[in-house]
Design a protein around this nucleic acid. Structure first.
Lengths: 230, 230
DNA sequence: CCGGGCGTACCCCCGGAGGGGTAGCCGGAC
DNA sequence: GTCCGGCTACCCCTCCGGGGGTACGCCCGG
């Protein structure tokens, strides 16, 4: 048997922390190494106690569980974070998952399942409460993106043309694209003319839109070029 | 006790269908009402047999399970669809979820869990195999979207300016925006000037990018205006 | 009552974008 | 060998987009 899993409990409610500690101490494969009463404490305690798994509440003073999760996963910490909350709020769920949480459980989860979940996330697995799973799936179903039909349109472009289109969608002017690809601006213009003709676009703006709609570029991939220089 | 759950088995492999039928028939709360050997059959059988739950394979001739799922959920069918496949392919997973599947299980799932899963999806819950959950969560963590920081930038715009920005991001030319808002084009230009000054953007292309990056508009929301008219 | 934000509207000016057409060069297909 | 697709590169010309500045009515808040 390996060493017990090191767990950090984060919750602003004293009773809840005590309860969790009691539940977890019944399992000899788990060792509660420390507690924190808010997100800010959690961040420092993680650094000090180096837990394997963090049980994280969401609603807390000072720094909420989502922000704390973001902090912790942003640092090189190996700690896996398991959100444990009463509220099945959509913003919480997606906020936590984007922040890098490995799981999202509701506090109504039964003790045995909580223990199983801690082991699961420690192993690298992820898990969600069933109703949370449902919410996540519904969101995915609602926002279908990488439009396969649009992708088909893009396939009529040559590799070079796709490359130009992508740079257009990054906000570059023709001269900048030319510099990037090390060709003349006139060449870029020629490519662009063909692109717009093939895709039946009116101007580069519609080209940018198509690039986003087809998933050629995606939100979050490209920092908006801050070039206020005219 | 209510009537047994009506289940349709869809798999191109005869043995697999037989096996599933055997497993499910051991449970008296489940009634296998029909089978289909490919996606096209599945679509028609769903119409005829009106199952509560469809166990759907992915890799099949004629019409694959993803496409069949899309067909079925697109119609008014109440059938809930549970994907059951050997392959943990990312495209399969996200394709299926976008197509409206209620769950995604691997064929290595144990019989009891499969039966439990069928009941769960029939109840309206959703569920994923643990490793699939992991994949889904990782994808969410990788693509954080409705950028809250970007949203903050947008808040410096007046309502009217946001409205103009959105139309710009839909690919409209200034004159078209003017017509849409029933104002003069010169007014649109004035708004646009202020927008670009406030957000430190160089041209409307960067405005479109910012609109997508901040979630003011999202892929899939706006059909690309097909206006090849010059 | 008066300042200021907002929405509206114009002016002049010019540079980049986009339409149309032409052309050389290269590599692979036939 | 020949032909075609892809990449490169120009020319000319038009016009929309964007910079800078001004202005006026409206409504809200101090």
């Amino acid at each position: 048997m390996t060493a017990p899993l090191r767990v950090l409990i984060v919750d602003d409610d004293d009773l809840m922390r005590a309860g969790l500690r009691a539940v977890l101490s019944s399992d000899e494969t788990i060792q509660v190494v420390d507690e924190a009463a808010d997100g800010a404490q959690a961040v420092t305690r993680v650094r000090e106690a180096r837990p394997d798994v963090v049980l994280m509440d969401v609603r807390m003073p000072r720094l909420d569980g989502i922000a704390a999760t973001r902090e912790i996963t942003a640092t090189a910490s190996q700690a896996r974070i398991l959100i444990l909350t009463t509220f099945e709020d959509e913003d919480y769920i997606f906020g936590a998952l984007h922040a890098g949480a490995s799981g999202f459980l509701l506090k109504r989860t039964r003790p045995e399942q909580l223990i199983a979940a801690i082991h699961a996330v420690a192993e690298g697995d992820s898990l969600l409460s069933p109703s949370v799973t449902r919410t996540v799936i519904e969101r995915m179903a609602r926002s279908p993106q990488p439009d396969p039909a649009g992708g088909r349109r893009l396939r009529s472009l040559t590799p070079r043309e796709r490359e130009v289109l992508e740079l257009v969608a990054r906000g570059l002017a023709n001269a900048e694209i030319a510099a990037t690809l090390v060709v003349e601006e006139s060449t870029v213009k020629t490519h662009l003319k063909r692109i717009m003709a093939k895709l039946e676009l009116r101007d580069r703006v519609q080209a940018v839109i198509l690039a986003y709609e087809t998933g050629l570029v995606r939100p979050g991939e490209a920092p908006v070029r801050g070039v206020p220089r005219p």
